[in-house]
């Protein structure tokens, strides 16, 4: 191996990685030996240059200044980002608009509700519907005479309560007067049409009931039985109420109970008369 050949392969050979032929040439050639020695020296010395220099203090000052500026820029960006975020919130006008919309909606809903209530009231059946229904249910034995109820009492109504049996008696008399000719003679009509004497407002006239039942029975014997039952029930209701009222005249609830009983009988009479009319 000559010098040219050795130096040609030198870049690819590291220290300790040389072949025997290369080592032999190195031992015999001072030129190549000096070259390798110099290169090894350069490598050794080069490594000592690592981290050998100290930057001037100005470098750190410049870095600090740059960092401060960078932080300032970042803060500015953050502030602008927050401002951007705030600007994306809806303005108060939007909320007012929403509130106005809600108000309109509530008004509209209230109007609809009112209309619905009116519509509901317009379809409410008259009290007579329930009366008929109640009577029919009672005829079929599905309901019984209502027991004593707790209804608020009006003292003014109680003061007029004595009018109910009077009206009932008048109605009975009127009904009998109208239909008597078809079933009884005129004398009896006159007799029945004459005012009944109600010695007390709480007294129930059994005779009037009988006349009413007779009048109903002439048109429908089956209904007579039903009305007979109704009257029996309502008379019991009245008696019960009268007894309670007598026991405690100052009990407004009992007075209301009594008035309801009279009204109930009045209703039965009214229904019987309606049914008996041609």
């Amino acid at each position: 191996m000559n010098c040219a050949e050795f130096q040609q392969v030198l870049p690819g050979t590291e220290k300790g990685g040389r072949s025997a032929e290369q080592e032999l040439h190195l031992q015999s050639c001072s030129v190549c030996s000096d070259l390798v020695s110099d290169l090894d020296f350069i490598v050794r010395e080069a490594r000592t240059l690592q981290a050998s220099e100290e930057p001037s203090p100005q470098v750190w000052q410049s870095i600090q200044a740059e960092i401060a500026e960078l932080r300032s820029e970042l803060d500015l960006i953050a502030r602008e980002a927050r401002a951007l975020q705030a600007s994306e919130e809806p303005s108060p006008a939007v909320w007012k608009s929403i509130q106005a919309e809600i108000g309109d909606w509530q008004t509209e809903m209230a109007s609809i509700a009112a209309q619905a209530r009116e519509l509901q009231a317009s379809h409410e059946p008259s009290p007579r519907v329930w009366n008929s229904l109640e009577i029919a249910l009672r005829e079929e034995g599905l309901i019984r005479q209502p027991q004593r109820e707790t209804v608020p009492m009006s003292s003014r109504r109680w003061r007029l309560g004595w009018l109910v049996p009077v009206a009932t008696a008048a109605l009975v008399a009127f009904g009998v007067l109208l239909y008597r000719p078809t079933v009884v003679n005129q004398g009896e009509v006159a007799q029945s049409a004459s005012p009944r004497v109600f010695h007390t407002n709480n007294q129930v006239s059994v005779k009037d009931d009988q006349e009413l039942l007779n009048a109903v029975g002439t048109r429908s014997p089956a209904m007579r039985v039903a009305y007979e039952n109704d009257l029996r029930d309502v008379n019991a209701y009245i008696r019960d109420a009268e007894q309670s009222a007598a026991a405690d005249p100052n009990d407004e609830e009992v007075q209301q109970y009594l008035m309801d009983a009279y009204q109930q009988k009045n209703m039965v009479y009214q229904m019987a008369l309606d049914r008996s009319l041609p």
């Binding site: 690592q50 050998s52 220099e53 100290e54 930057p55 470098v59 870095i63």
Partner: peptide, 11 residues
Amino acid sequence: LYHLHKRRVYS
């Protein structure tokens, strides 16, 4: 960190 590594980086 700067003082730990400044010499090598600067060199």
